[in-house]
């Protein structure tokens, strides 16, 4: 006897076996002729410059944070939606209150400009003065 999640697990295992079999077959069949130039990191044919761990934009982090908040909200909405037809007006009003509280946060984030991907340079006096004396590159 298999439960439904047992079948899902069985599916996962079989999918894993399929993929592994494919990879092992390819490993047996394919040629292996590595040499140092081939194994360098690809950077359009040039030798790689610097470390690949570049400082990427902080906005990715902000997006992830806002995502977390709303994802938790969705998790709260799922059980509510499931039993909503039995609960009626009470559930409706309660959920509207919950959504309004979240909406205030959402509006705050929007007005603050965290949802804008393309933002103007912030005017921080010290950095602006640095940039004036440094026409070649900009500090951020």
């Amino acid at each position: 006897m298999l439960t439904d999640f047992g079948r899902v697990l069985l599916f996962f295992i079989i999918a894993g076996i399929f993929v592994t079999l494919g990879l092992v077959t390819a490993w047996i069949v394919r040629p292996k002729r590595p040499y140092p130039d081939k194994l360098t990191t690809y950077e359009c044919g040039e030798d790689p410059v610097g470390s690949p761990w570049v400082k990427y934009n902080i906005r990715f982090y902000v997006v992830a944070l806002i995502f977390l908040i709303f994802e938790v909200e969705i998790l709260f909405l799922f059980p509510w939606a499931l039993v909503y037809q039995d609960l009626g007006l009470f559930a409706f009003i309660e959920m509207v209150i919950f959504l309004v509280i979240l909406f205030v946060g959402y509006a705050y984030v929007w007005v603050r400009g965290d949802l804008d991907w393309d933002r103007p340079e912030p005017d921080i006096p010290f950095i602006t003065s640095l940039n004036k004396n440094n026409p070649d590159g900009t500090f951020r």
Partner: peptide, 22 residues
């Protein structure tokens, strides 16, 4: 992959997928 393009592509992809997952 330890490659700039891969890292940026992966990051972008994550941000895009989690934004639309909502």
């Amino acid at each position: 992959s330890n490659n700039k393009y891969s890292l940026l592509g992966g990051l972008r992809s994550c941000a895009q997928i989690i934004s639309y997952e909502l």
